[in-house]
Lab assay of single mutants.
Amino acid sequence: DLSALRVEEVQNVINAMQKILECPICLELIKEPVSTKCDHIFCKFCMLKLLNQKKGPSQCPLCKNDITKRSLQESTRFSQLVEELLKIICAFQLDTGLEYANSYNFAKKENNSPEHLKDEVSIIQSMGYRNRAKRLLQSEPENPSLQETSLSVQLSNLGTVRTLRTKQRIQPQRTSVYIELGSDSSEDTVNKATYCSVGDQELLQITPQGTRDEISLDSAKKAACEFSETDVTNTEHHQPSNNDLNTTEKRAAERHPEKYQGSSVSNLHVEPCGTNTHASSLQHENSSLLLTKDRMNVEKAEF
């Protein structure tokens, strides 16, 4: 173990290094160091905050020279020094078990990766560091076993998940096959086929009936047209017969005018059967003409 005197000496050296690497504005270890034209180094955030307070150039807090945003430059070497100082402080805390008085939040800088452990060898070769390295080497064999167990647990979990997924996939297939086998029997399929065939026959029977009705309507229309044509021909046949009657009536009127007047009046009210309204109107006109002729003949006879 380190003596108290040596611990104090190391602590004083760390404090001196820390004062050199402090920012003059925030009085902390410089984060993202930036250098000016006057070779003074500050935190990048502190300098941008200072420049944004005034429009135009501002003055350096140490030498009062003008500073602009374009004049600022990043210093990589200074950032490396800060990183190495942080590593020294971490090693000091691990070796002594004491917390550094002016320690900052170094938890963000710590890294437990194997590459980081290899890099620590180049920091300080001390008894405390050696003991700590031995402890780490002793704890390393235990870690692979834990990793193997965790991997086995994960693989077993994956296997159970896969088996569950396969079961879920197989179950719908089985149910679907069961439904297909038990849903419709052979008799049901035959009945469905016969039902479809009967429906098709009914459709075939319905369509000819409609065509037959249309044919019957067409035949009825044709018969009505033929009947009207026969009526017209009958009226045409009746007209010459009426003319013959008129000639006979004229002759009778010349011989017996008194008797014919009474008979002509009675004939006005008689309509021949089986004739249309057109034929009756023609008869009325003929009878009126005959009456006028008879009157003329009677007057001539009187004179």
Rank of each mutant, 00 (worst) to 15 (best):
S126Q: 13
T247W: 15
F227K: 07
V270S: 04
Q11L: 10
L146E: 09
S145M: 04
S126W: 05
V190D: 15
F45R: 15
L117T: 15
M17I: 03
Q168K: 15
I41W: 15
C43L: 00
L21M: 08
P33N: 07
R212Y: 06
P144C: 08
E110H: 08
E214F: 01
I206G: 08
V265T: 12
F78Y: 14
P208L: 04
V265P: 08
V7N: 02
N131R: 14
R162V: 01
N246T: 02
A133Q: 15
A253W: 05
E285K: 12
E142R: 13
T275S: 12
Q18E: 15
S266R: 11
L282F: 15
I206L: 06
V82S: 12
C46R: 01
L151N: 15
Q18A: 03
A133Y: 13
T230M: 12
S35A: 13
S266W: 11
Q201G: 12
K87F: 06
D200Y: 06
P141L: 08
C38Q: 00
T68I: 03
L94K: 08
K54W: 01
T207H: 12
L48S: 14
H284L: 11
N234R: 04
C43S: 01
L94I: 09
A224L: 10
K19I: 01
S35E: 10
N191S: 03
E187K: 03
K250W: 05
E140C: 05
L245I: 11
R165L: 04
D218T: 06
P61L: 00
G159A: 07
S150K: 07
E254V: 14
K192N: 12
H256A: 13
D218C: 04
E84G: 13
I25M: 01
H269C: 04
L62E: 04
A223S: 05
E142M: 11
Q11G: 10
R212T: 08
K87E: 10
L94R: 12
T166L: 01
L29T: 06
F78P: 06
L268G: 15
G262H: 09
H40P: 00
I206A: 07
C38N: 00
C43N: 00
V10A: 03
P61T: 02
F303L: 15
N157L: 04
E202H: 14
K54G: 02
I123T: 06
C225G: 14
I20A: 04
D95G: 00
K49E: 08
K259V: 10
N65R: 15
E32H: 06
I89F: 05
L245K: 03
E83T: 01
S216F: 04
N112E: 09
K118I: 08
F45N: 15
N276Y: 09
R165A: 06
Q147N: 14
K221R: 04
S150A: 09
D95P: 02
S263N: 10
N65V: 05
T248M: 07
S145G: 04
K87R: 10
T160P: 08
R169W: 07
L204T: 05
L164G: 10
T233I: 14
K108W: 03
T230K: 15
K19T: 02
T76S: 07
N157Q: 09
Q154Y: 08
A301P: 08
S156Y: 02
F45Q: 15
T149I: 04
N12V: 06
D66W: 08
L62R: 00
C63T: 02
M17K: 00
A133H: 14
Y260T: 02
D200N: 12
V34A: 01
S280V: 01
N131F: 01
L158R: 05
I170W: 15
A91C: 01
L51F: 07
E229L: 14
N65A: 11
P144V: 11
C273L: 13
Q93A: 04
S35P: 01
K19S: 02
L282I: 11
K44H: 00
I215F: 12
K250L: 09
S219C: 14
K250S: 14
L164Y: 11
K54D: 11
K69P: 10
T247I: 05
A301N: 15
V82E: 00
L48T: 06
E110K: 06
L94D: 11
C60R: 00
F45A: 15
P33S: 07
L136V: 12
L164W: 14
A220D: 11
T163G: 13
N246C: 14
S139Q: 10
C63A: 00
E8H: 15
E249G: 13
P144S: 13
N105G: 04
A133W: 05
K221H: 11
K259P: 01
V198L: 10
Q209F: 09
N276G: 11
S219Y: 11
S288V: 06
Q138C: 05
C43I: 00
K134A: 15
T36L: 03
R77W: 15
P257C: 14
R6G: 07
R135P: 06
P141A: 04
E148G: 14
C273H: 14
K118N: 12
V265F: 11
Q138T: 11
K54S: 09
F42D: 01
T149R: 14
K49T: 13
E22D: 01
T166W: 00
E120H: 15
N234A: 13
S113G: 02
S58N: 01
K192R: 04
P141Q: 14
V232F: 08
S216K: 07
I206Y: 06
H278E: 14
E22P: 00
S216Y: 11
T233H: 15
Q125C: 05
S75N: 15
S219I: 13
L62F: 00
R132V: 05
H278N: 11
K54C: 02
P33I: 09
N243Y: 14
S280T: 14
I124G: 07
K37F: 08
G159R: 04
L282T: 03
L5V: 12
K37Y: 08
L51K: 04
D200S: 09
E258I: 04
L81I: 13
S280C: 10
V190G: 12
E271Y: 01
T248W: 04
V7C: 04
S186E: 10
P33M: 05
V82F: 02
N242F: 14
S264H: 06
S145I: 07
D213E: 15
I88L: 13
I20N: 15
I67F: 04
S145N: 15
L86N: 06
P24S: 01
I41A: 03
H40L: 00
I67R: 00
A4M: 01
I206V: 01
I30P: 06
E258C: 09
Q261D: 03
Q93T: 05
R162I: 00
V121N: 08
K31G: 04
K87V: 11
E140D: 11
L158A: 09
N246V: 04
I20V: 07
S264P: 01
E258Y: 09
L203D: 09
L21Y: 11
T207N: 07
D231N: 12
Q138W: 12
N234C: 13
E99P: 05
K259C: 05
T247C: 03
R77P: 06
C273E: 10
N143I: 06
Q59Y: 02
K259F: 03
K167Y: 04
F303Y: 15
G56V: 03
T36Q: 01
C23S: 01
Q53V: 06
R165K: 06
Q147V: 09
Q53W: 04
L203P: 15
R70A: 15
F42I: 02
N112W: 08
N234V: 02
K167N: 11
H40Q: 00
Q11C: 13
L136Y: 11
P208T: 07
H40G: 01
A16M: 00
A4N: 06
E110P: 06
L136H: 15
V161Y: 15
S183Y: 01
Q59L: 03
G199D: 07
I30M: 00
N143K: 14
